[in-house]
């Protein structure tokens, strides 16, 4: 039996290790699935890149850095959200959701660990795509990981929060996947608008907006994390933690509702 903070920590580490190992094993066993996802994203990027270059000509190169950073953030945000939102439906279909619920730790805690494990896959796909985009375009941008990783992590906390919200709603209401698809268009709007929302402070509290703005500055203006204004960083942290907490609380609410309605694990 798992008791105490130390017990909970070792239990969490063990669960996280199991989830990460599972993801790696599946990625290694079915490399075409992962490769297919990357090829699809790369094809989409090529379409935008080549289309933009033929339309705008030499002027396009000035916006290339912004495009790459925006595309990178879109891939990460969408993957982290979509993976998590769809994961609970998939686990329910596989008949494994109940088994995750029956662990001797809180289900919402397991959901957070699932978020972290899916985030690692997201990072893998995101950074692979970033390398491909830079190689293809011959663009040079700042890749200071000490500055990039914290910004990306806090930015993705908001999409993970939304993923938890939709994941919880899926457990309770089942077939709501049609709404999932719509959210990615909203993400595109927020990422594109992110740097232009600088003027309106309230808009910084939308998901991805502040992250998009700061990431553009770090990667294209070659700033370091500590070069950024403390207020801007505080907004990033607050927005990330706020959406994550919001998603976490609603996830717990929806799973409790699912238990009351007797539909936990059904699909």
């Amino acid at each position: 039996m798992i008791r105490g903070r130390r017990g909970r920590l070792s239990s969490s580490v063990s669960i996280l290790r199991a989830l990460v190992t599972r993801n790696i094993l599946i990625m290694k066993r079915y490399p075409l699935n992962t490769a297919g996802a990357i090829i699809g994203l790369y094809a989409l990027f090529l379409l935008v890149y080549l289309g933009g270059r033929s339309l705008l000509g030499p002027g396009f190169s000035g916006t290339l850095g912004a495009l790459i950073v925006g595309f990178f953030l879109f891939i990460m945000g969408n993957a982290s959200y979509k993976t998590l939102a769809g994961l609970f439906a998939t686990e329910a279909k596989w008949g494994t959701l109940e088994r995750l619920y029956l662990l001797p730790v809180k289900f919402s805690h397991v959901a957070v660990l699932l978020s972290i494990s899916s985030l690692l896959v997201t990072f893998f796909i995101g950074f692979t795509m970033l390398a491909l985009m830079l190689l293809t375009t011959g663009t040079s941008i700042s890749l200071d990981l000490v500055s990039i990783l914290p910004i990306v992590t806090f930015t993705l906390l908001s999409t993970i929060g939304l993923g938890l919200l939709f994941g919880g709603a899926t457990i309770r209401y089942k077939n709501i996947s049609s709404i999932f698809g719509l959210v990615k268009f909203v993400f595109v709007a927020f990422i594109v608008a992110g740097p232009t929302f600088e003027e309106v402070f309230a808009l910084k509290f939308l998901p991805l907006v502040q992250g998009s703005y700061l990431l553009q500055r770090v990667m294209n203006e070659e700033l370091r994390l500590w070069d950024l204004e403390p207020l801007e960083l505080s907004v990033l942290v607050l927005v990330g933690l706020g959406y994550f907490t919001f998603g976490y609380v609603l996830f717990r609410y929806f799973t409790e509702r699912a238990r009351t309605a007797g539909v936990m694990g059904h699909y």
Binding site: R22, L25, I26, Y30, W94, G95, T96, E98
Partner: peptide
Amino acid sequence: AVLEGARSTYWRL
């Protein structure tokens, strides 16, 4: 518990 018979496991592992 085994509630879903032959399901309940990860078929790709």
